[in-house]
Design a protein around this nucleic acid. Structure first.
Length: 158
DNA sequence: GCCAACGTTGGC
DNA sequence: GCCAACGTTGGC
């Protein structure tokens, strides 16, 4: 049986790392560091697989929006930024021998012609169960259903 | 800048 | 193991 592809959404503040940073050159990759939430960590560690596609989401932006797509190119491995006291997301409790936090590598795939803002996404009834649109949703790594991924891609290309 | 919704921490 | 206090996220 063919490997099933999963879909995800990664949040970032564009001030910190934006789609344009990732789109700076073709096939650019980056490590997705700084996730310090256990549920999000579990997704990164256990479920995100090479070849999975991820939506790139700008939070704390105007407008907050899905802005593009990336591909997972390296599966979960220790987030080494947690070991460095000079890093913003340093965590003294995460040990090299027993890392608490994980990250993946992603590769730029495409930037949408226009950002798909939250307001616009909320208008689609196909997306009414989407994690991103749930009230109080704060997860920075979230699963996206194939149907939702398809709906959003279609909207982006329309 | 406000604040609701969460997650985490720590006293008990 | 409960839960109040506190810190953070992130839309508005």
């Amino acid at each position: 049986m063919a490997k099933q592809k999963n879909y995800w959404l990664l949040k970032t503040e564009p001030e910190c790392y934006s789609i344009d940073d990732l789109a700076a050159e073709p096939n650019k990759t980056t490590f997705w560091d700084g996730v310090r939430n256990y549920q999000a960590r579990n997704y990164l560690r256990d479920q995100m697989k090479k070849g999975d596609e991820v939506f790139f989401y700008h939070s704390n932006a105007d407008p907050p929006a899905i802005v593009g797509v990336a591909t997972v190119v390296k599966e979960g491995y220790p987030d080494f930024t947690a070991f460095d006291p000079n890093e913003k997301h340093y965590d003294a409790k995460s040990k090299q021998s027993e890392p608490t936090w994980m990250m993946v590598d992603i590769k730029f795939k495409r930037k949408f012609k226009r950002p798909l803002g939250l307001t616009e996404l909320r208008e689609l009834k196909e997306l009414k169960d989407m994690e991103l649109l749930r009230q109080g949703s704060r997860l920075s790594v979230q699963p996206v259903r194939p149907k939702e991924f398809e709906t959003i891609l279609k909207l982006a290309l329309a």
